[in-house]
């Protein structure tokens, strides 16, 4: 199988290029894309990418594989290569490249920070913990699982065009995670920050984010709920 990898070291290279490697796939089992990278790196230690947990938990190996964003550690080679016979690896689109497949996530984190991603509750903390009913706790399912891998936001055209102003699907999923939390007391303040022309409303419901999320979360639905809350308010 041919593996084509985006190579770019901004300090050295004039322009990014694609470098091809030949890779012998084992016949008896399907590898994960990350396995392929790890083995290629033995041969060429200059290939750079992030990885840590290798099991879809840390969110560090988000990349673009044959045109689709996902986590290399939980994406099988066969599912992306299909009939093309070629594996094409590029960094997450839209973010500045630090080196090869490693991107600068500052913009992504800056948007995450904007939504105050923590519980705001001014009441005296109880001895043990703030309790929630089972139903209230269930409202957070499908929201708290986000691992901030950025696969969604970097597949979103609105985020490509306005990364400084549009919060993006990952940040908005977390915004809703705290809006939906029965223990949070800052609902109004949170909503007040979201009614401008960009933060939430740049979302055009293209749903690339839903397609990209390796944790099968649904940022578009969360964005819809935020819009509904803004309309109610």
């Amino acid at each position: 199988m041919l593996v084509s990898i985006y190579r770019y070291v901004p300090e050295q290279d004039e322009a990014p290029r694609m470098q091809d490697y030949e890779f012998a796939l084992p016949a008896e089992r399907d590898l994960m894309v990350l396995d392929v990278l790890e083995q290629l790196r033995v041969e060429d230690p200059s290939i750079s990418y992030r990885r840590s947990c290798r099991e879809g938990v840390c969110g560090s190996d988000g990349m673009n594989m044959n045109g689709r964003n996902g986590l290399a550690c939980k994406t099988t080679v066969s599912s992306v290569v299909r009939k093309s016979g070629k594996l094409v690896l590029r960094p997450l689109p839209g973010l500045p490249v630090i080196r090869d497949l490693v991107v600068d996530m500052s913009q992504f984190y800056a948007q995450y920070e904007k939504v105050d991603p923590y519980l705001i509750n001014d009441d005296e903390p109880p001895q043990q913990e703030r309790l929630q009913s089972i139903e209230d706790r269930e409202k957070l399912d499908g929201l708290y699982e986000c691992i901030l891998c950025a696969c969604c936001s970097t597949s979103c055209p609105s985020f490509w065009w306005n990364p400084e102003k549009f919060i993006g699907p990952a940040g908005l999923l977390q915004a809703y995670r705290f809006l939906a939390d029965s223990r949070d007391q800052a609902t109004e303040e949170r909503l007040e920050k979201l009614g401008d022309a960009y933060s939430v409303f740049r979302c055009r419901t293209i749903m690339n984010c839903v397609d990209a999320c390796p944790k099968e979360l649904n940022p578009t639905r969360a964005i819809g709920k935020i819009r509904a809350m803004l309309l109610d308010g």
Binding site: E192, L194, G195, D196, A197, F201, R202, R227
Partner: peptide, 12 residues
């Protein structure tokens, strides 16, 4: 108004 522009535009 700017803080609500997205909402107003959306409704309009």
């Amino acid at each position: 108004l700017a803080a609500k522009r997205g909402l107003i535009d959306f409704i309009l």
